[in-house]
Write a protein that binds this DNA or RNA. Structure first.
Lengths: 160, 160
DNA sequence: AATCATTAGTTGAACCTTCAACTGACATCA
DNA sequence: TGATGTCAGTTGAAGGTTCAACTAATGATT
């Protein structure tokens, strides 16, 4: 390694801000969901993905790639969601290795009750603070950053 | 709660990108540090804060607020860093309740060896993908978002 | 000086994620 | 059809964070 190219003042400022947002924003979003619905952000998105899927079901592998989770993590979480009555499992007729996670009616009701508060929190924390031009500037820059972090756009294709 | 104001298409796009970056960027930064130095990002920043402090020491409370950590988390981590020989503790003469965490020579050497690779990773993941204008757009928008998440700017005042 | 509230820090249990090892099903290819 | 490799998912242990309860020291109030 040659002598490192340290960050310029402007870069350092941007980096500290980016770092602060990546720490504080997920905590704020998670906190609202926990307080108002007893769900972690991850659990909420698992249920939300299922609520939007056809027949309210997805294989664990599909869910894992949509939520950027390991299969192991998802397996543990789906078991807990199952114990709570929000998700059940079903065999996949096309492939004996796959297992569907299926959203129950109770799970659907939970997502639907949690969604408005979640969206409000996203608005409050992000979009209420930004002008249209600022939002566009943010969006463009994030897209650039994602070009190396998620080149296949796995995490930005799906609905909320 | 009245009928929720759902996100517009542009807002949804920006939100998915912001969410993706908050998930993937810390994982990428953390991964590089773990691979090359055996440190988590949190441990690295604890040591980095100490390396920059006068007499290489800070009270745990001060460290906690600079790293956005709970005192409990920090207490556990400082114990582990102490077992590894990178940090020691010292009593605070001004206030018998406070305890200094002090960076050892070995800890200083570790931070100095880890810093270049870390900065390179930040460059590669963030600034190499952005034009100056894009970086500015990002920085401005993040600053707006932080106005409600961290109004006192606790996390953006300190050095890297 | 005695009391009460607050601040600094520690500790152990509970919880979640990661990791590695494992089972079972499908695919490939001889 | 048998052997081998890969894919889907599970499991239990290990490691880190959170939470609540705790100790000890300081500050404030009388």
């Amino acid at each position: 390694m040659t002598t490192p190219r340290w960050l310029s003042d402007d870069e350092l400022t941007a980096w500290l801000r980016l770092r602060a947002v990546t720490m504080l924003l997920p905590a704020a979003i998670d906190g609202q969901l926990k307080r108002d619905s007893g769900l972690t952000e991850f659990e909420y998105y698992v249920l939300a993905m299922l609520s939007d899927a056809s027949d309210r079901r997805l294989t664990l592998s599909d869910l894992a790639s949509r939520t950027n989770s390991s299969l192991s993590r998802l397996s543990h979480v789906v078991r807990r969601l199952g114990e709570a009555g929000w998700v059940t499992k079903a065999t996949c007729p096309d492939d004996g290795r796959s297992t569907f996670a299926v959203l129950t009616d109770a799970g659907m009701a939970l997502v639907e009750s949690a969604a408005p508060g979640h969206v409000e929190e996203v608005r409050r924390r992000v979009f209420d603070t930004l002008s249209d031009a600022e939002r566009e500037g943010l969006s463009v820059a994030l897209e650039r950053i994602l070009s190396t972090l998620d080149p296949a756009h796995h995490l930005t294709r799906d609905i909320d």
